[in-house]
Nucleic acid binder design. Sequence first.
DNA 1: TTGACAAATAGACATTCGTCGATATGATTA
DNA 2: TAATCATATCGACGAATGTCTATTTGTCAA
Lengths: 110, 110
Amino acid sequence: MTKHTDLNLIDAVAFAKAMADQTRQQIMKLCCCTRLTVSEITEKMAVSQPTVSHHLAILRDAGLVTIEPEGRETYYTLNQERVTACCGQIMLIFAPEEKVTETVSRALMP
Amino acid sequence: MTKHTDLNLIDAVAFAKAMADQTRQQIMKLCCCTRLTVSEITEKMAVSQPTVSHHLAILRDAGLVTIEPEGRETYYTLNQERVTACCGQIMLIFAPEEKVTETVSRALMP
DNA sequence: TTGACAAATAGACATTCGTCGATATGATTA
DNA sequence: TAATCATATCGACGAATGTCTATTTGTCAA
């Protein structure tokens, strides 16, 4: 048996880990279709500013947010394209027999 | 501000938590398009049988596997439809502006 | 240049999580 | 019935995770 690491799985695991927290999903929802600073996000949440920064770093490492520093503020935006790419890959791996997966793969393939 | 819990997020968090482990994703991949017993899964993995049972219970609680007891064996199968439903919901919540999300929502809506 | 503000980092702490070996439960077979 | 096999559960342990306060870093304004 070939003993190689499954890169597809690794990506899917990293994506799932990044999304596996309610606070992070709240942050993702907040900056979904808009640009927000860390302060603005913190205002709308029930956790401290360092905690928000911590979660944003995790989302950044997973490629799930884009970052735009502007002066002393930093704007974060959810990377929707990345979300669809990861979900599409998960569907390809774990739901290859579903019709909708076929649809998605056709829509995502360039 | 309305202080209600977001049920969509809760489902999405539960799904992500269930998928946020490499061992579990390996198990999911193994029983993706086939029925496997706990023993058969354990043989193909590098962890102990109790660990496999533990992960199968987590996947079961998330609705990601179906269970068929037969005599003293138990067959597990990945629930591909559940995977697409969860991925579709995540795309609706976190990628509402992507074209592919529109496609998926149309394909998944009954 | 000094003071104020925004964000990131460090360190501490409690909780959750993944894993194991040992054991219990339940079903088949001799 | 007794022995065996398949699976689940228990209890323990170390590692990872989420949160906080305190502090640092970097930027703007008085």
